[in-house]
Amino acid sequence: MTGPKSIISTLQRHGALWPLVALGLIWLVIIIVNPGFFAFTIQDGRVFGGVIDIFNRGAPVALIAIGMSLVIATGGIDLSVGAVMAIAGAVAANLIVGTDLPAPLIILAGLGAGLAAGLLNGTLVAGFGIQPIVATLILLVAGRGVAQLLNDGQIITFQNEAFAFVGVGTLLGLPMPVWLVLFVLAAMLLITRRTALGLFVEAVGANASASHYAGVPVRAIKLTVYAIAGLCAALAGLVATADIQGADANNVGLWIELDAILAVVIGGTSLMGGRYSLVLAVVGALIIQSLNTAVVLSGIPPKFNLVIKSAVIVAVLMLQSPVAQAQLASLRRRFTA
């Protein structure tokens, strides 16, 4: 029983149908406005093509969305991810310019900064019981300031091929950011499925006090998810910084927390917590990036960009809403009956 119908119903059971339909429709629009966009070519051992561009460009949002999914699943939220990107980028750029450290150590230092930021968020939320939106708002505001301070208000540019590889390198024909997303996704799936972490995360999000009484280490789980979100954001920051070989503390990751939250929501994760899908969060990030690309390719004047983006996203979210789903189900019943 693996006919098209059963595939559709499997996808539907996992909430994956509508995000994939939306992604497919956006790609269809892209093919209509620019038929050559998805053509694959291989040049200097690197595969070029529209799909790869979208994956590559969507990588920072996808990376952050993976971490954000876990945070949201515990009923929290992390607004500081964009600022953490800026800090990680600033730390890396300053180390490259100011020291002779090898690239791997610089990458570790950047990730370390993100981990520290995540632990700070986690401590405020889990240790002091501050509401997540407030706790991470502190770093949203102050974090970018820290990055600007590190950069002395300038854009720090650098020449370091080993570090730039994180953003522009090619491995087995694919851009490095794409591999990083796949690697982080696989690692997180493994950690959440093969250990109890995934179950605990959902339990904390569904009912924190019940979980506590059932013996789930609620505080440790919350601390862990914010730390993971910080690490993911730092990795995204390193990718973005390596991409332009410069740390632009004012602009890197600006408003990306909103795109990441949106990606998670488009993927069907509830902001109330207790239910999440890492794979669909990445699909959500691809939807957002595909929309960006479609708008650029369509040649519509830039002042319409945001309006078009929001109209499409409203449509996607409405299709996924329980009300619309119930309507669709009753329509289907009428047709099949």
């Binding site: 620019n34 050559g36 966009f37 070029f48 529209g50 561009d53 460009r57 854009i155 973005a240 991409d243 332009i244 410069g246 632009d248 602009n251 890197v252 690309t293 650029v296 390719l297 040649g299 004047p301 830039p302 960009n305």
Partner: peptide, 23 residues
């Protein structure tokens, strides 16, 4: 022949130019 906003930033400038070159 093609025009798009890149928000005065280096990162967006790179991204939009990439798309232009593909298009």
């Amino acid at each position: 022949v093609m025009t798009q906003t890149a928000d005065f930033t280096r990162a967006r400038g790179k991204e939009i130019m990439e798309t232009f070159l593909r298009a």
